[in-house]
């Protein structure tokens, strides 16, 4: 199950999202490759908006709803983290 474990930065993001959204799950149990939307974590568009607020506050990254790459960015925690790490300002 090596591929399923979170690295430190992914875990930090998972913790921030679980705390911010008051999700009923332990951050370390999130599958980094599972989709955030729908079947994976079961989040919907209002959760995505809340995620964007958490990410803006904690990382200084503006996730815009009109970004054409959103599908890819939000496709998994791992991809979201990669996008944040390459754009973060804090």
């Amino acid at each position: 199950m090596e591929a399923k474990s979170l690295d430190d930065l992914e875990l930090a993001l998972a913790k921030a999202l679980v705390a911010g959204l008051n999700l009923d799950l332990a951050p370390e149990t999130i599958d980094p490759d599972a989709p955030l939307y729908g079947d994976g974590l079961g989040l919907d568009s209002i959760d995505m908006l809340e995620i964007s607020l958490v990410v803006a506050r904690d990382y200084g990254v503006q996730l815009r709803s009109d970004n054409p790459d959103n599908q890819q960015i939000f496709s998994s925690l791992r991809n979201l983290n990669q996008y944040i790490q390459s754009n973060r300002t804090r």
């Binding site: 908006l49 964007s52 815009r64 709803s65």
Partner: peptide, 8 residues
């Protein structure tokens, strides 16, 4: 207009 700006 934009979602997160409206919320803020």
């Amino acid at each position: 207009i934009s979602g997160s700006k409206l919320i803020l």
